[in-house]
């Protein structure tokens, strides 16, 4: 009856028929059969911790390319008072604990502003992650917000310059918006600027390992 072998195999692969189980999985009903020691119930010893069932938060990568403007809030800096700005920043996103929305973003990169302002930027700050709507992507919120402090090192109009920048950053999908304040010192001059930046971003919230 070897010919039935291929028939049975084909049937097993095809499954088939109304109410037929495509694969033998357990279901309700009544078992019968030979002698066997009764099943044991393995019980937990004490209350279970609840740690690993929370989602893991491995480090993720962040990138943003932002275009915007800065507006001098004081007259201490070389003109112009209004500048076009460009930022290219790479970051590392670290969740603080499993299942927690709290995180830290560390980022660094290049920041340009019209009028010969070139800065190397390095900053860090706390973030709130995975909040807001899921936007149809997975089961966690897709928004990220951060409050970041940056150090600025570079040149303005050919003179050595430095400063600090404090920003509130929002990321959603591939978009970001940053509102910041910047204090810059150029030689003997110094002043405050307000910045508004819009841009594209990539924010990987701790990719899942499988």
């Amino acid at each position: 009856m070897s010919g039935h072998g291929s028939w049975l195999l084909a049937c097993a692969l095809a499954g088939g028929g109304p109410g037929a189980a495509p694969a033998p999985a357990e279901g309700p009903g009544e078992a019968q059969g030979p002698a066997v020691p009764p099943p044991r119930t393995i019980e937990e010893q004490g209350p279970s911790p609840y740690h690993y069932r929370k989602p893991p938060e491995p480090p993720g990568a962040a990138f943003r390319l932002g275009f915007g403007g800065s507006f001098a809030a004081s007259r201490g800096l070389p003109p112009p008072r209004t500048r076009f700005t460009l930022d290219v920043l790479l970051g590392l996103d670290v969740g603080l604990a499993r299942g927690s929305k709290a995180g830290v973003l560390i980022e660094g990169g290049y920041s340009y502003a019209y009028g010969g302002q070139h800065f190397f930027v390095l900053g860090a700050g706390p973030t709130v992650r995975h909040f807001g709507p899921t936007l149809g992507l997975g089961r966690r919120g897709q928004l990220v917000a951060g409050l970041l402090a940056h150090g600025l090192f570079g040149k303005v109009a050919g003179q050595r310059a430095g400063g600090v920048r404090t920003s509130v950053v929002f990321h959603a999908l591939a978009w970001m918006i940053e509102v910041g304040h910047q204090y810059v010192a150029v030689g003997e001059q110094s002043g405050h600027e307000v910045r508004l930046t819009l841009g594209v971003s990539f924010f990987e919230l701790g990719g899942r390992r499988s």
Partner: peptide, 18 residues
């Protein structure tokens, strides 16, 4: 089974047809 001619499948309409 240990060869192609020997197959087995869970009880269902298709295999019972055979």
């Amino acid at each position: 089974g240990d060869n192609d001619a020997a197959a087995a499948a869970p009880l269902g309409w298709q295999v019972l047809g055979v």
